[in-house]
Simulated scan of single mutants.
Amino acid sequence: MKRSRQRQLHIIRQGLWYSLALCVVIMLFGGVGFWVLEPQVITLQDGLWLAFTTAATVGYGDMVPQTHAGRVFAALMVLLGLSVLSLVTASLAAIFVEQEVEAEVQAEERQIERELMNEIRALREQVRALDARLDQTQAAQKQETM
């Protein structure tokens, strides 16, 4: 069962890395797209900045798409950005939730282990008491036969 949780956490962490990689690819795509489509975007760095602010829906206003193609591309970037940034956020949240659930499960397992150990102690005491009674009974039978 412990191995299953570790595998789940590993898969969730992989999902985070895949989401981040997808985010980087989309930002690069957006930066190049704005660099090609918008005349005010002189450098690739400006294109990346515009792609990020558009995808994150921040929109500082320092750069805005001015051409029709740039505006359509910006709408696409908003949709892609919201989707991918939501994936990254969900992956991070899943890691935190999984860790919290794992801690709760471990605490519950420790409690069950304590209860089982107490029951085993009680059973051992009962076995000792039964052994003592059996020894007494056998000793009494030996005395009667003598």
Rank of each mutant, 00 (worst) to 15 (best):
S86W: 09
A94H: 01
A74K: 04
Q66I: 13
A107T: 05
G70T: 05
L92E: 01
E108K: 08
L85P: 00
E98K: 09
E98Q: 10
L82R: 04
H68S: 09
L80A: 14
A107G: 01
A93E: 02
D62G: 11
H68C: 07
T89K: 14
L82W: 04
S83K: 06
F73S: 01
E102P: 00
P65R: 10
Q66P: 00
E98L: 07
V97L: 11
Q66T: 12
R110W: 14
E109I: 10
E104R: 15
Q66D: 04
E98W: 05
L92T: 04
V72C: 07
A107S: 10
L80G: 04
I95P: 01
S91V: 04
Q106Y: 06
L80S: 06
Q106I: 07
I95V: 15
G70A: 12
V101K: 10
S83W: 14
E108D: 04
A94L: 07
G81V: 05
D62H: 12
A75L: 15
L87E: 05
D62A: 15
V105A: 08
V88I: 08
P65Q: 04
E104G: 10
L79F: 13
D62L: 15
E108F: 09
F73V: 01
V72N: 08
V105M: 09
G81Y: 05
E109N: 06
T67F: 14
R71N: 06
F96D: 01
E98A: 15
A103V: 03
P65G: 11
S83Q: 08
L85C: 10
V88L: 05
A107H: 08
M77W: 13
V64D: 02
V84S: 05
V64M: 14
R110I: 14
E108M: 08
A107Q: 08
T67A: 11
L85A: 12
T89R: 12
E109P: 00
S91Y: 02
A90Q: 03
S91W: 03
S86R: 01
E104Y: 14
L82N: 02
T89L: 15
V78M: 12
A75F: 14
Q99C: 07
V64L: 15
V101L: 15
H68M: 13
R71V: 13
D62Y: 14
E104A: 15
L76K: 13
A74T: 01
I95R: 05
L82K: 03
A93D: 04
V101A: 14
V78I: 12
D62Q: 14
Q106M: 02
Q66L: 15
A94F: 01
F73N: 01
A93N: 06
L80F: 15
Q106F: 09
E102H: 10
V64H: 10
P65S: 13
G81M: 04
R71T: 06
A75W: 15
I95E: 03
A90P: 00
E109Q: 07
E102T: 11
A75C: 13
V88E: 00
T89I: 14
I95C: 09
R110E: 13
A93P: 00
V72L: 13
V78K: 05
A69P: 00
Q106E: 01
Q66F: 13
A107Y: 05
M63S: 12
A94R: 02
D62C: 08
F96W: 12
R110A: 15
V97A: 09
A103E: 02
A74I: 08
H68R: 11
E98I: 02
E102Y: 10
M77E: 10
H68W: 15
Q106H: 04
T67R: 09
